[in-house]
Design a protein around this nucleic acid. Structure first.
Lengths: 151, 151
DNA sequence: GTGCAATTGTTAGTAGAGCATACAATCCCA
DNA sequence: TGGGATTGTATGCTCTACTAACAATTGCAC
């Protein structure tokens, strides 16, 4: 079969050598996850990052922006824009840290707590979609392997 | 320890319940990959998507944009912007398909072939960084599990 | 064969995420 | 006490992704 003929008879999943690239599979998996997440959260109008920040600040009231960024692997500027957005929507407030004047202590507002509750429901749904294709043992393996990449 | 005290004594990797969320680990792993990729490709000024498209079109000369998008899981509009960029930089050309007037056949220019060669070198470096933390068996497992998410 | 629906490419607009840079306030340590 | 480091902030840029609308083309139903 000539190359031209091959181009005329495509198989949707034929990505050739790219299939052997680990990073490529990580990117595709992330994309699939991202799309499903966005659908699941369409009503709440929250992104993955926004939920992560709400969740983390709820777990650690009063934490600083730099802390949030470090734990979620974002730089200061990116963290800023996310906190700004959450604050503008009334889900979060900043308060000058009592112990370190450079820091802003972050807290959820009551509205933030409410939306986080809804978000956790949606997360459960999203995670169920993701987990449905794995056994618990496979999930443990997957998370352990992924952790080696981002740690 | 009070919550306030906890906030004052943060452990960088303490992300609480978030740690149990599969999607969260996928996102962090993707982010780590993305950052290393960007560093590795700083000289070439190519993104993951751009390299994927170059690679795919080199494998399948004359393929259509919709095909590229389908295989890389991008919509038409996103594919457009990436092809536009690659074409503007002289790495790719469009040609009206002989068999379907709606389609554009995509081809690499000689410059595109050259840069793809450099890109593949950089990919090898990037993949080596990624693979260094796994055995071959673990890599096979990881790719198989990731494929279940994006297929 | 003709007409209508689907496909493909294109354009324009919006939004989020990420990064670099610069600056001010604050903190910490020598 | 002074200088370097840390933290937050502001600005601007790029890339990715999505929607909606439109035109050209194709292919199927009739």
């Amino acid at each position: 079969m000539t190359e031209a003929a091959a181009a005329e008879l495509p198989q949707d999943d034929d990505i050739g050598e790219l299939n052997a690239i680990v990073g490529f599979h990580i990117r595709l998996a992330h994309g699939a996850c991202y799309r499903h997440f966005t659908e699941t959260f369409a009503d709440l109008e929250l992104t993955q990052k926004q939920v992560s920040v709400l969740w983390l600040v709820d777990d650690h009231p009063g934490m600083s922006q730099i802390d949030v960024g470090t734990r979620l692997q974002m730089d200061r500027a990116t963290t800023m824009t996310i906190v700004n957005r959450l604050q503008a929507r009334g889900y979060m407030r900043r308060e000058k840290s009592a112990t370190d004047g450079r820091k802003q202590a972050l807290f959820l507002t009551p509205e933030g707590l409410t939306i986080l509750g809804h978000a956790k429901d949606a997360i459960r749904e999203h995670e169920a979609w993701l987990k449905s294709r794995f056994t618990q043992k496979e999930l443990d393996t997957l998370m352990e392997l992924l952790a080696r990449i981002h740690d």
